[in-house]
Amino acid sequence: MTWAVVGASAGLGRAISECLARQRRSLLLVASDARDLEAHAADLRVCFGAEARVLAHDGADHAALADAMGRALEGQDVEGLIFPIGSVDGTDDGRLGGPRAEEMLRINLLSVVSVVSRLLPGMMDRGRGVIVGFSSIAAARGRSRNVVYSASKRALESYFESLRHLAEPRGVVVALYCLGYVDTNLAFGQRLLLPKADSTALAARICEELGNRRGKRYLPAIWGPVTWTLRHLPWAAFRRLRF
């Protein structure tokens, strides 16, 4: 039984795949650059004796990615699909050009949609499997920064609600983690309101809960009430916030 991690070569994806390798799960590691993937897979083989295959593919080319993953997983029981994939852009302030905005939507949303649509039927036929997605606290409420990124993550949240509605009655567990600040390259060098969570600790938590956790969850948990407050802040107050 194979676990596929899409976005496995860095940050949280790398930490999650390391956790899975420690549990001796069979892995398909997917990311855009073969050099990162080969190095990561080699490390997991040496350190944990894990079976780790790699697939280098750009998430922006989502239909081709789904085809490639379908071929790579042909004839195998897919136990889990994990999507720690995402793209942000420091110039995403409402003036982002069409092609780049489209690329972000492809990576953040459509790559997940395409891969799931390709592999979900098999999982539902077997009546088992786990699908895990990752949203962001940036999706809590639209603001003048991370405009397209937030929109794509909010769309992803809606998609995962639908996915849960569709797949859970057929035995597939669907979970969506809404991440706060994490100590990865996405947050490096930024002055932030709250401390950054350690990606290794988050990965351990997520891997512990695989197959048991359903629905949406904030990580770290403190972001649940923070997000709730932001959502319910009157517009007159929210519009004054600069973050």
Partner: peptide, 12 residues
């Protein structure tokens, strides 16, 4: 082997 990608500022 990895394909070229555009520069993407990440943070700061």
């Amino acid at each position: 082997g990895g394909e070229a990608r555009r520069d993407r500022p990440v943070s700061g």
